[in-house]
Amino acid sequence: MKKYSFSEKKDTRSGFGAGMAELGKTHPNVMALCADLVASLKLDAFIKENPERFVQCGIAEANMVGVAAGLAIAGYVPYATTFANFGSGRVYDQIRQSVAYSGANVKIAVSHAGLTLGEDGATHQILEDLAMMRAMPEMTVINPCDYNQTKAATIALADHVGPAYLRFGRPVVPVFTDPNQEFVIGKAWMVNEGKDVSIFATGHLVWEAILAGELLEKEGIDAEIINIHTIKPLDEAAILASVAKTGCAVTAEEHQLNGGLGDAVCQLLSRHKPSPVEMVGVDNSFGESGTPAQLMEKYGLNAAAIVEKVKKVITRK
């Protein structure tokens, strides 16, 4: 098992903020919009340096998406930001018509996705957004795993022409990816090569997959771990090549089992290489209040849950 370590924990939303600050210097056409959540989205640095390229939209997300589409048509590259709940389900039709169907170069960049939003509870813990955005034609969907990857994804999206949904989170988590990584949209990252099982993980579950891989190694199970940061377009070649080698897969995501990464992987495998799959995710339920760690434990979204699913899927080979 390849060794991964971290010297600090940071929130992925701060990676987004750092990416925006960088884009403020390098991309004069990049704009930021926000619906009354500037501090939560870590936009302070961007706004301080580029006040004229920031548009405060107030608590009116539908309008924010439309304004972003108008800015994009007029040649700017707007990042429309809010919590994931308000940047997906609440504005699905606005994104669908004014952004995706219209081919507007708008980036929907959203924080506080999933259970790890924590104490605010289920009203704010969107666990269906990847499913919604995956279903939308022409939408690119990215769910990075740590501060560095989120920063790199934020920067990469500025040069990617087309609508995109970038999803990140609130809690501090280990920073373990390369600070100078090249982020290629749609290209999965091989975290660890192995032969017994393929673990496809996204977002906060990637670090948990690494912890699971270390636990499995002690039990003589050699897990291949692949980070699927781009949910759409899916890196089909990487997934098929891995399962061709291992013969089974476990998916892991901070999202409903319905419609997320697990579904995407199952759809791909059932078409091209039917194989046993087990899925780690939220099973058709809403979340609740609690600390992020408590919630991930209660809803089975951690290393222990991944280990359990790996052991099960191997018996099904």
């Binding site: 439309g66 800015l71 048509i73």
Partner: peptide
């Protein structure tokens, strides 16, 4: 045609965004 429309209520926002951009320029 610059934007899809039909699902009502969205055009004023889009126009406002474009107007904002034109002022910025």
């Amino acid at each position: 045609i610059r934007i899809a429309s039909g699902s009502l209520g969205q055009g004023l926002s889009v126009a406002a965004g474009a107007a904002y951009a034109k002022k910025l320029r």
